[in-house]
Amino acid sequence: MDTFSPLKAAPLSRRAGTRDTIEVVLNVNGRNHRLAVDPRVTLLDALREHLGLTGSKKGCDQGQCGACTIHVDGRRVLSCLTLVAMVEGKAVTTIEGLAPEEGGLHPMQQAFLDHDAFQCGYCTPGQIMSAVACVREGLATTDDDIREYMSGNLCRCAAYPNIVEAIKQARAEMEEQP
C-alpha cells in the first residue's frame, strides 16, 4: 500500500439556503430556464412537470425501458435516472428540440412515419432520440448492430422490425446531411 499526504479540503458549494429547495439553471433545446426544485426532482420530471415538455415519456421510471431517453451534451442518457441538478451547465435536447427551428421533421422522425415504426407511440420519442444518437455514434452499421445498440429502448407493441428499417432510412439521409 502506497500512502501519500492527505489532501487539503475546500468547502462544498450549496446552491440554495435550505435543505429542500435548490436553484438550477436548465438549458433545454437552446433555452435557459431557472428552476427552484426539491433535490429529488429528476430531469424527466423537470421537463414534464415544470417546463411542460411532455414529449419525453415516463415508462418504468427505473432506467429499464428507455422511454425517457434524451440527449445531454449530445450523448443519449436516461432522464429518469438523472437528477435535474446534475445537468446544470449542460445542453439538454429533447424530442421537442430535435427538428430544425424553421419547420419540417428530423429525418429520423420522418423515417418512423414512413416505416410505421410504432403502434401506440408511447416509446417513440425515446426510440427516436436513441436512434439519432445511435447513428451519430457510428454504431448503426448492420441490422444486428442496430438491434444491439438500440436494446435499451423497449417497445411493447413490438414494432422492432419497422424501427430497424426506419433507422436505416434515416441513417442514409443523416450521413448525406449531418
Binding site: L7, A10, L12, R14, I22
Partner: peptide, 19 residues
Amino acid sequence: MRPFSYDRAHDLASAIRAA
C-alpha cells in the same frame, strides 16, 4: 424517494471530507 440534501464537490478533498 425520501428527502435528501444535494451538494456539489468542486475538488476531491472536499468530497472526501464530506463523507
